[in-house]
Design a protein around this nucleic acid. Structure first.
Length: 587
DNA sequence: CAGCCTCGAGTTCT
DNA sequence: CTCGAGGCTG
């Protein structure tokens, strides 16, 4: 064929890529900003390498591919935590604290009098784990999901008050919080504002952004600090001892106090609350830890929280705003969710304009109507949460529970004894189909890079994709429809998307099962089922008795699976899917 | 059978 | 993060 034409095309693309990558590298290394996401940047580099491999003649002496250390992927390799780094349970009032103590006593079979406590300020920063071997800092990692974090050793070594060597022979793990002092934060933001760069919302985000720099020289300039609060590897008896030992090893340790009773702890809380604004670091509460380490060990964990410590948080920032409307959403399972549309309001550094209300019972309980002024806060500093009515308005419109699906107009159903409302049109509702494709492409399923909610919506609305199967036939159709004329669908992005889809054709069994979207079967159970079944064929012809052997599957979930595998639509779907993908079983 | 704990599903904004 | 429901345990 016309290989000359192809070469010309490749050359044009190549030059464009080199310019683009050089521009982003410059922005990143010399101006400390990222104009695009890491993933997008990575795609550009991959494409560049691909072109160079295909047409070596194209390679220019100043190609970004010959520069060292420029690849962003793999910059933070995963690190497993020997002991999980879990988050603390939150208490907001005295009663929560009492309940926490009562639970701990009951679990350890002791009385309240046996307990004493270590109280500490709760730093609003990023938790990190530091591993010292023979006194040398060998690895630092972020909390990540609690079980697996990211290796940030290079960056952590730039934190001013983290010693690289400590006078101790045992191998120890030290945990603590990295933060940006408020003075440093203000200075940094002033500087960024002067230079026309985006300012950081709060010291925690600034610290997070500074720590996760590819170039640790940037981290070094950000004046990060560290408070240690945990040490593992040498024999100590109490949390107070730990903090004293950490001090001795020249770590900074934040304010702490020994308490014998909850009343003493309350006083500590009030004292810290008063001086909170005088500190040069952000705190979001105080921590109550059971002092005795042996007891701590014995108490262990309850789900995702340790049983030995609790965070007593300062009240979250709350704002008033008007409820403008209620949007009715249809999820991939058909579940109907009311979402509050709010008059946009600033809260914790971002503009909040919507918040989920979970279900209609919630609306009724809170007796909210459209037009009311309501109170909003952010749970975990991220997700807006509606607390309730602040001021009732006389001119309000009451919220009506919908009777028909906003997408397909089917009559909605609610089963007796259940709270949620569902659209029953499983195989014909456009909203459900769209939500399913988005789910199908997501990380926990086929993990198709670059195919998020927005992209799926466009493909769907253009009529290119009605079902996940269509994704695997996409190759030619996008050209026929000329989607590349649309913004965000240039030839480069389309090629990248097609490459991602190609890559996703190999999939682990558990992700495959999860991607089927069987009602009430999510990633955890999918993994269990994958471990238990040899192949998809065996699963598709399974029986109730066979499923009963799996721990965690009760009658309800078994029914859902049986219903799924005996439905012709689903059987056809799986068979078609298997023409396009390859399940990897031994993972 | 009550009271955990685990799980799924939906969700915000940058 | 948060809610509701399923499932297991005592």
């Amino acid at each position: 064929m016309s290989s000359k034409l192809e070469l010309l095309r490749a050359n044009a693309e190549y030059i464009k890529l080199v310019k683009l990558i050089n521009k982003y590298d410059d922005l990143y290394y010399n101006h400390d900003t990222s104009a695009i996401s890491d993933a997008e940047y990575d795609k550009l580099r991959q494409r560049l390498l691909y072109l160079e491999e295909l047409y070596p003649i194209l390679r220019t002496p100043n190609s970004p591919s010959v520069k060292v250390g420029a690849s962003i992927s793999n910059k933070f390799s995963p690190v497993e935590h020997k002991i999980p780094m879990l988050s603390l349970e939150n208490a907001f009032n005295f009663k929560d604290l009492e309940e926490f103590i009562a639970r701990a006593c009951k679990y350890a079979n002791i009385t309240t009098e046996c307990l004493d406590y270590c109280c500490e300020q709760k730093i609003d920063g990023l938790s990190v784990s530091l591993i010292y071997e023979k006194g040398s800092l060998v690895r630092a990692s972020t909390r990540g999901n609690g079980y697996i974090g990211e290796d940030v050793t290079k960056n952590v070594k730039q934190v001013i008050n983290i010693p690289h060597e400590i006078p101790i022979v045992e191998n120890v793990e030290i945990r603590g919080e990295i933060y940006m002092p408020i003075t440093a934060f203000n200075k940094l933001n002033e500087e960024r504002q002067r230079k026309g760069k985006q300012t950081f919302v709060n010291p925690r985000n600034a610290a997070a952004g500074s720590l996760r720099q590819l170039d640790e020289r940037i981290t070094a300039k950000r004046n990060l600090c560290f408070f240690a609060y945990y040490m593992l590897g040498i024999k100590l008896t109490s949390q107070i001892n730990v903090l004293e030992k950490l001090k001795e090893l020249k770590f900074s340790v934040c304010d702490f106090e020994h308490c014998n009773t909850i009343d003493e702890f309350q006083n500590y809380f009030l004292k810290i609350k008063k001086i909170r604004n005088k500190l040069d670091y952000a705190i979001d509460g105080v921590v109550l830890k059971i002092n005795n380490l042996e007891l701590q060990n014995q108490l262990g964990f309850a789900g995702r929280n340790p049983r030995h410590s609790i965070a007593y948080k300062f009240p979250a920032e709350q704002v008033e705003t008007k409820l403008l409307n209620i949007e009715v959403n249809v999820g991939r399972s058909g579940k109907i969710t009311p979402v509050a549309i709010l008059k946009p309001v600033q809260l914790c550094g971002s503009t909040v304009s919507r918040a989920t209300l979970h279900n209609f019972k919630e609306i009724k309980n809170k007796s909210i109507s459209i037009g009311d002024v309501i109170l909003v806060e952010k749970s975990g500093d991220v997700i807006p949460k509606i607390i309730g009515i602040s001021r009732k308005k006389s001119k309000q419109t009451s919220i009506i529970v919908p009777t028909n699906c906003p997408s397909c107009a089917s009559n909605l159903v609610k089963m007796d004894g259940y709270i949620d409302i569902f659209c029953p049109n499983k195989y014909g509702c456009p909203a459900q189909a769209l939500a399913y494709i988005i789910y199908f492409a997501s990380k926990q399923c086929f993990d198709i890079n670059g195919l998020g909610k927005k992209q799926v919506e466009e493909l769907y609305n253009f009529g290119l994709v009605h079902s996940p199967i269509d994704l695997f036939n996409l190759k030619k159709s996008y050209i026929d429809f000329g989607l590349e004329l649309k913004q965000g669908w240039g030839s480069l992005s389309v090629q990248n998307l097609l490459a991602s889809i190609e890559k996703s054709r190999s999939i682990s069994f558990r992700k495959f099962i999860n991607a089927l979207g069987i009602h009430e079967i999510g990633c955890n159970l999918s993994e269990k089922i994958a471990d238990d079944f040899k192949s998809i064929d065996v699963l598709m012809s399974t029986t109730e008795e066979r499923l009963q052997c799996i721990n965690g599957l009760g009658q309800s979930k078994i029914n859902n699976i049986i219903q799924f595998v005996s439905n012709k639509i689903n059987i056809d779907f799986v068979n078609k899917l298997l023409h396009h993908v390859n399940i990897i079983y031994n993972k």
